[in-house]
Nucleic acid binder design. Sequence first.
DNA 1: ATCTCTTCCTAACATGTGTCAATAGACGGG
DNA 2: CCCGTCTATTGACACATGTTAGGAAGAGAT
Lengths: 257, 257
Amino acid sequence: MLKAPKAIAEIDFPHTGNFLSGRLRKHLNDDDLHYIEDLVEGTLPIASRDTLVERGKRIDCSGILISGFMARTVETGDARCIVGIHVPGDFVDLHGFALKRLDHSVVAVDDVRVGLVQHSTLKRVMEERPVIAQAMWFATLLDAAIHRKWIQMLERLDAPRRIAHIYCELQTRLELIGSASPRVLRAPFTQQDIADMCGVSSIHANRAVSKLREMELAEIRRGTLYTNDWSALRDYARFDPSYLYGDGPLRLNESWR
Amino acid sequence: MLKAPKAIAEIDFPHTGNFLSGRLRKHLNDDDLHYIEDLVEGTLPIASRDTLVERGKRIDCSGILISGFMARTVETGDARCIVGIHVPGDFVDLHGFALKRLDHSVVAVDDVRVGLVQHSTLKRVMEERPVIAQAMWFATLLDAAIHRKWIQMLERLDAPRRIAHIYCELQTRLELIGSASPRVLRAPFTQQDIADMCGVSSIHANRAVSKLREMELAEIRRGTLYTNDWSALRDYARFDPSYLYGDGPLRLNESWR
DNA sequence: ATCTCTTCCTAACATGTGTCAATAGACGGG
DNA sequence: CCCGTCTATTGACACATGTTAGGAAGAGAT
C-alpha cells in the first residue's frame, strides 16, 4: 500500500503551489493556507480506477485531492459500495491519520493528482498551529454532514432522484471551489459507478438515467451531465445545499470567536 | 431552543460523577476523564420524544448522553429520517460546537439524562488540553465511520437485514460501554422509529419484524429485542463490528505515538 | 369496567427494483 | 479495417416495498 517514501519517489517536483482550493480555504487565512500547501512534499498522479489507500490498511501519509474525482468505496463480497465522492481540495484520507485503520478505500474515478502530507508532519503542525488542527476537524465534520445527507437521500428518495441529488451535490461543491461550468458537469462515472452510489443495480441506474432524460431534466452520457435547468433538477431531487455549509466566509459557530 | 442558562436552571445537582462510560473513555486516562466529567455543569432530564437540540439552530452548550437512547433526526415534509442513534457516553451534539448551525435534530427516544457542557468551556479545554481536543475529534470521526456503515447498509441490505444490523450495532455499542444484556436489548423504539431508521414504511417495517420472528432469529416487541443467538443474527445482517473500532485499548494510529 | 389513544398487525393492490438474457453501441488494439 | 471488450440499453418476469384501508391488541385515563 501507499508508503510515503515510495510515493515520493514517483512524485513530480516541484508542485505548482496554490492548489489548495477546497474546503479548508474557507476558514483559514492566506498565511495558514500557504503553510499547509508547503507541507505537501509533492504530488502523485493516479490513473482512473487505481486505489490510493485500501480499506483495512494503516497509512503514514494522507492525500489532498488536487484534480479529478475520487470515491470512498467498500467491497462487500461481489458488490461494491460507494459511500462518498471527493472533489479537488478534499483531504481524502484524513481519517486515516487519526483512526487505527481505514474503514474504506479511496479510489480514483478519473485520472487524478494527489498531494501527499506525512502524518508525522501533520502531528507536528497540529501541535504548533491549533487553528489548523481545528480546520482539519471541521473538514471531517463536513464529511460527516455529507454522510448524513446521503443517509437521508437513501432513506427517502427513489433512484432517479438519488442520481439527481448526487449530481446537484457535486455541482454545488464544484461551485464552492470555483470549478463548475454552467450547463455541464463533466465526470467520468459509468452507470455502474452511479448504481454503486445509489445502492441500486446498474440496470436500474440505466432506467433512472433514462427517466431523467425523458423528463428533460438532465442528459447523462458516459458520466457527464448536461442540463439547461439546474433549478428544476434541484427541485426534483429536493436538493437543499445548506448541509454543505457553503454560505458565508466560514462556518465557525460564533461561540468560537 | 436549548440555552445553557435555562437548561442549567432545570438541572439536578449534584451529578453523581463517573458517568462518562462511553467512547471517550477509550483513549483518555482517568485523570483526563475526570477532568471532562468536571466540565459538566449539571444534568438535564429529557422526556421521551422531546427534542434536545433542533436542526437549524445554533447552540452554546453541548450534551453528553448519560442514560437512555437518543436519535439524530431530520424532518422532511411529512416524513422523518433517523440518521443515527446515540447510546450513553456519546457526545450528542458536538458538531454544534464547531459548525455554524445544526444539520439535524437530536431527540430522546427514551426518558434520558444528559450532561451539559458550555461551548466556552470546551473552547478553553481544547486550548489547555490538546489530548482532549484530539479525543473529541476522534469521537466525531467514529460518528462518521458509523454514518458510512449506515450508507452501506441502506445501499446493500433489505429491510429485515437493516433492522437486524441496527440492533447488532446497538448491542455491540452497549457491550463496549458495559451496558449490554446477554439475550435482550431493551429499547423503546416503535415500529415507526425502526421504519425511519431503515428508510422503509412502517407497514414494511412490520413485515420485516415479522420475518425475523418467523425465522426465529429475533423477537422484537415494543422496540425490545429478544434473541437466543446473536451470532446467527449477526451473520444474517452481515454485521462486522470492526467499524466501531472497539478492539484494543484505543484507536490511535501508531504514527501518533 | 369503559373509553380513547397509540401501536401493532393484516390484506390487497400499485409501484419500485432486482435478475436474467440478449442486443446495440462505443472504444481501443491489432 | 476488424475484432474484442467494456458500457449502455431493452424486455420479461420475480421480488421488494409503498399505499390505502381496516381491524386487533395493548396502555392509560376516567
